[in-house]
Design a protein around this nucleic acid. Structure first.
Length: 310
DNA sequence: AAACAGGCCTAAA
DNA sequence: TTTAGGCCTGTT
């Protein structure tokens, strides 16, 4: 299976720019934004589309709506789509080929089920610093609170985004927290806030970790540009030099913020998956260059099964 | 009320 | 090298 041709066109709706994509396959906005890979997007409940998610990424408030194989990106031009949102949404990849690649490397029936059940998930290509910082915050924490903390530091240190023309495309959950309309803070601004300031936002013991990460990125001690060239294993070690970043957080940052698609975060759910479906000598590398995508499928699958219980 | 939430750090075997 | 506790905070 290969990607059918996607047609891209620009339309206007109520004065704002909208990119309309027709013929998009293997993309499910609900799964993309609700599988736990990003913390800034929420559903627009009163959408006139089948499903719609909105949030701030790369300093802009956008909304992604979907009706079948037609996808709309609100508040974006075709130029921005080609340079930013296409990669952000994972639409520059052929997921038919990726899925085939994963399944060719393993005959595990659970993996087969996971790929089928998770069809439509795409790995987002988020801002690298935002991914690092967000996943530091994620440790020993739950998703609603992670979202709240990210919104809180954005409100404190980020910049208000332009919402003009986006009335009717605001995620309902965002209305409760003004921070959802602010860009993700730069490392510099978080350093200025200081450990005490970060702790005052209820980040708890993570305050010193965020501060350490921001300091190292700011000083160039951690050079995000270098990571692109590094192997995933080397990049994990590199990021783990930051206090508060361990293998799981590093792998998440690399998978979701650096397009290292072989990064394989092992959290409590994946530990469970491995124990349940794989033998003890399982190595993530056995799943190949897209092992991280397989991880996300397995993660989503196991949580789906859990949600079906009882 | 005690346990847990998409871990990590530190100290101690 | 591997293994327990403890950790900010909020929710169940």
């Amino acid at each position: 299976m290969v990607n059918a041709t996607v047609s891209v066109s620009a339309i206007k709706e109520n004065g704002i720019n909208v990119v309309k994509l027709c013929g998009v396959e293997l993309f499910d906005a609900g799964k993309v934004f609700d599988c736990g890979q990003c913390f800034r997007f929420d559903e627009v409940l009163d959408s006139r589309h089948d499903i719609e998610f909105a949030g701030v990424a790369f300093g802009k408030y956008i909304s992604v709506a979907q009706d079948g194989d037609t996808v709309y990106i609100y508040n974006a031009t075709v130029e921005e789509y080609e340079s930013v949102w296409k990669k952000f949404l994972g639409l520059d990849r052929d997921y038919g080929e990726i899925n085939a690649n994963i399944l060719a490397l393993s005959d595990n029936p659970a993996l087969y089920d996971a790929v089928s059940r998770s069809s439509g998930i795409r790995i987002l290509y988020q801002d690298a610093w935002e991914a690092i910082c967000s996943f530091i915050i994620s440790q020993n924490n739950n998703i609603p609170r992670i979202k709240k903390l990210v919104a809180a530091i954005s409100l404190e240190c980020g910049e208000r985004v332009d919402l003009s023309g986006m009335e009717g495309h605001i995620a309902d959950a965002h209305k409760a927290h003004e921070g959802n309309f602010y860009s993700f803070p730069t490392p510099e601004s978080l350093i200025d806030l200081g450990i005490a300031g970060l702790a005052a936002l209820k980040t708890g013991f993570r305050a010193k970790y965020i501060f350490d990460a921001a300091g190292r990125v700011c000083s160039g001690e951690i050079d995000l540009g270098l990571i692109e060239e590094m192997s995933t294993a080397d990049a994990v070690k590199y990021l783990c030099s930051v206090k508060g970043i361990g293998p799981k957080v590093a792998s998440c940052a690399l998978l979701f913020g650096f397009a290292k698609l072989d990064a394989f975060p092992i959290d409590v759910w994946i530990k469970k998956v491995i124990a349940k479906y794989f033998d003890t000598e399982f190595e993530p590398e056995s799943l190949g260059q897209y092992a991280g995508i397989a991880q996300q499928y397995l993660f989503y699958y196991e949580r789906y099964l859990q949600s079906q219980e009882g």
